[in-house]
């Protein structure tokens, strides 16, 4: 079964997934008109900084099983539809209980187009509408670096494993340098430089 898989090493913090997510969950689903909508659409995926922005991390709902948010919801507003945890805004009373128990802080409270009188829990819906139409989730579609994938987890694990095994083989058989095990790219170079800057801010314990 396919699901959204995050490859954190590939996230470069461009936040395009946040924008794509906002647009997808706007009324018009159009970037130009969505910015004029009330209430404004908001992302359900959050690109968070690691230490001093040397890293970034796309944080979104993991659709836990069992899901603490679903269990604690006192009105039954949070429910499950084919392994996706969803919120029915009309049943949400905005009690914040789900945010209290969500271990990843991926539930936010926002105005919903359907509910005007209160803020309701808003979270990743796995782009369930898109999936039903045979599309992939918006965040996956927009990510050009391969940090957010929509695929079979077992397949990805297998590919990664094979890739690594190949490299180990190269090191052993052909005497290649051990460096090949560690992928280096221009983003790593930048990260190293940024880390040095960050070090100037930290008074190291002597």
């Amino acid at each position: 079964m396919k699901s959204v898989i995050i490859i954190p090493d590939r996230c470069i913090g461009c936040k395009q997934c946040e924008i794509a997510c906002s647009v997808e969950h706007s009324k018009s689903k159009n970037i130009y008109s969505s910015v004029f909508e009330t209430p404004k659409s908001a992302p359900r995926i959050f690109v968070l900084p690691g230490d001093h922005s040397c890293f970034s991390f796309p944080n979104k709902c993991r659709h836990c099983d069992p899901a603490p948010c679903l269990m604690i919801c006192p009105t039954g507003a949070i429910y499950k539809d084919s392994s996706i945890i969803l919120v029915d805004p009309t049943r949400c009373i905005g009690c914040r209980m789900c945010a209290m128990v969500c271990p990843f802080y991926v539930i936010r409270y926002r105005e919903s187009p359907d509910i005007v009188e209160r803020y309701v829990a808003t979270k990743c819906d796995g782009c369930i509408d898109r999936i039903k139409k045979g599309n992939i989730p918006a965040c996956v579609e927009t990510c050009k670096t391969g940090a957010i994938l929509f695929d079979d987890l077992n397949k990805i694990l297998k590919e990664k494993g094979l890739n690594f095994a190949k490299k180990v083989f190269l090191v052993q058989k052909e005497g290649k340098k051990i460096d090949v095990l560690q992928e280096k790219n221009c983003y790593n170079m930048l990260q190293e430089l940024k880390e040095k800057l960050y070090r100037t801010m930290v008074v190291e314990d002597e």
Partner: peptide, 12 residues
């Protein structure tokens, strides 16, 4: 801080 993380495309 509120701008972090910076966009990697732009940084590169």
């Amino acid at each position: 801080k509120s701008q972090e993380p910076h966009c990697g495309y732009c940084e590169l």
